[in-house]
């Protein structure tokens, strides 16, 4: 187990290193520099600024410094936003994003599992039919379209919730729903398919032949086996939440990482863009690692035995 974990972490570091290198050299190709905004500067002033950002060093030195900084958790200094360190910017903004993502994931998957479960129990009934429709719509419609609909109907027209911004729990409701719809639909669809398959398997008949009550069959024998594969879609769900957070934080003007990213793109603040990208990559890779470990823990068939 430890060896497996170490190997996985090692691979993770390699991947991060590749991404960091890739993004560093991309940054060098890009035309942006801290000077663009400030037009009328003397050569001397420009020198000072470039020196401050370390942009006068030869590229290999810059690269080494950049990697050295990364190891210490230093993502560089923003070209904009009063030269704040990127780490500080991201740290300030991770709260709302994490809260929204967490709420959406929990609410979405719980509702989705319930929906899929009901659909599989009452197969070919109106419940199943509407659950299928919800699942197709939920996986198809882009979250920003859904967010627009929610914002216009429930905030602009009906005024039940704040239109945008951040602060009270009420502010989180619409963005959470908009973010949750995709995980919910995915979970509903997946749960239904898996449950239908599991309920047709032989060990369910064995359980019936033992006289296990129907509720026990569905929950103890069915759902447990159906939900294990659901862990595999958590990865795509996490990516969905990341893309979702960018557009939804933008739409609801939430001071999160996604909104920061979109703003940085608009003002060509490359250090911040790169820092955010690295953070996304890091988050994604860690999630995948956790999913793999979780899978091993929950499914006895692939339990990562000591030697592996």
């Amino acid at each position: 187990m430890t060896r497996y974990l170490l190997r996985r972490v090692w691979y993770m570091l390699i991947t991060l290193f590749i991404i960091a290198t890739f993004s560093f050299f991309l940054m060098k190709i890009l035309p942006g520099s801290p000077l663009q905004a400030e037009d009328k500067l003397t050569e001397e002033q420009k020198e000072i600024i470039l020196e401050k950002y370390g942009l006068n060093d030869p590229i290999p030195v810059q690269y080494a410094k950049y990697l050295g900084g990364l190891v210490k958790g230093d993502l560089g200094v923003s070209f904009k936003f009063d030269n704040t360190p990127v780490t500080t910017i991201l740290f300030d903004r991770i709260g709302p994003s994490a809260l929204l993502g967490f709420q959406a994931l929990v609410i979405g998957s719980i509702l989705g599992i319930l929906l899929g479960l009901m659909a599989s129990i009452f197969r070919n009934s109106p419940i199943d039919f509407s659950s299928t429709i919800i699942a197709v719509i939920g996986t198809s419609i882009p979250s920003f379209v859904f967010a627009g609909l929610l914002q216009y109907v429930f905030a602009v027209k009906l005024g039940w919730f704040p239109v945008a911004l951040w602060g009270t729990p009420a502010h989180t409701i619409l963005p959470t729903i908009a973010l949750a719809i995709h995980p919910m639909a995915t979970a509903a669809r997946f749960t239904r398919t898996e449950m239908v398959e599991v309920l047709h398997s032989n060990y369910i008949i064995t359980a019936r032949a033992k006289g296990v009550a129907e509720s026990g069959i569905i929950l103890k024998h069915g759902l447990r086996n159906a939900l294990i594969p659901l862990i595999t879609v958590l990865g795509p769900m996490a990516v969905g939440l990341m893309t979702g957070s960018m557009v939804i934080e933008q739409i609801f003007a939430i001071p999160g990482i996604g909104e920061q990213f979109v703003t940085s793109v608009m003002v060509n603040d490359y250090p911040t863009i790169m820092g955010t990208t690295l953070l996304f990559a890091f988050g994604f890779i860690v999630i995948i690692l956790i999913i793999d470990l979780l899978y091993g823990l929950i499914d006895p068939r692939i339990r990562l035995a000591g030697g592996k």
Binding site: S201, N202, Y203, I205, T206, A207, A209, K210, K220, H221, R224, N225, I228, D299, P300, R301
Partner: peptide
């Protein structure tokens, strides 16, 4: 009444 099934590979719950 109880029953023994044909395929022992699939008639036991894999996660129990």
């Amino acid at each position: 009444i109880s029953m023994v099934f044909q395929d022992p590979m699939s008639s036991l719950n894999p996660t129990m």
